[in-house]
């Protein structure tokens, strides 16, 4: 905990802030990646190997690339001249505050259940983070094997539902793309 935690937390918060404040959209995306990496390090710092590596694999390996692709393939990737704050910043702030409040409430409410309060969510202020904070107490280290057994055993039904949902989304995306192509002809 202590020093390393604060270093990683500072990195994560800095990444999140940079993602919001930088002007260049691609820089924002890269800063967001730094925030993701910081989160992954926080997970690892809490001995949550699976969550940490999955965070890197999914968020840095896939989501960041997706964001970058979306930026480059859409218009408006030019650096804006003026400020980067939109006119509806008040609404955004409210939404962010609400998310923060919910997360904070969840963390504080779960604190008595844990032997030692793990507070990774404090670092989760950087708006984009929706990863569920692992409710893993540091003391009983959860191995990857246990997570696997839980996923393939007790939680197999939710897992399958999520899988079916994702497959449906994938097929839907393919169909949408194919349809456009035919029309273009």
């Amino acid at each position: 905990m202590s020093l390393i935690f604060y270093l990683i937390a500072a990195l994560t918060v800095a990444g999140g802030l940079a993602a919001v404040l930088l002007k260049n959209t691609v820089h924002c995306a890269l800063a967001l990646t730094v925030a993701f990496a910081g989160l992954a390090l926080l997970f690892l710092n809490l001995d949550a190997q699976f969550a940490g590596f999955a965070q890197i694999l999914v968020y840095i390996g896939a989501v960041a690339i997706l964001v970058v692709f979306a930026i480059l393939l859409t218009k408006g990737s030019e650096t804006p001249q003026g400020g980067v704050f939109s006119r509806t910043w008040l609404v955004g702030l409210t939404a962010a505050a609400a998310v923060f409040a919910v997360l904070g409430w969840a963390v504080i409410a779960s604190a008595p259940l844990l032997p030692k309060a793990a507070t990774p969510a404090t670092a989760a202020t950087s708006a984009m983070v929706v990863t569920p904070a692992p409710a893993v107490p540091p003391a009983p280290a959860v191995t990857v094997e246990q997570i696997g057994r839980a996923l393939a055993g007790r939680y197999v039904l939710p897992l399958e539902i999520v899988a079916v949902l994702l497959t449906a989304a994938l097929i839907g995306a393919v169909i949408v793309a194919m349809h456009e192509k035919e029309e273009a002809k």
């Binding site: 590596f53 840095i60 390996g61 990857v144």
Partner: peptide, 18 residues
Amino acid sequence: DMDAGLLFYFAMGASTEL
């Protein structure tokens, strides 16, 4: 000797794309 060695490997491999 990591418990999730393979996962770690692929996590690092995914970072090269960026």
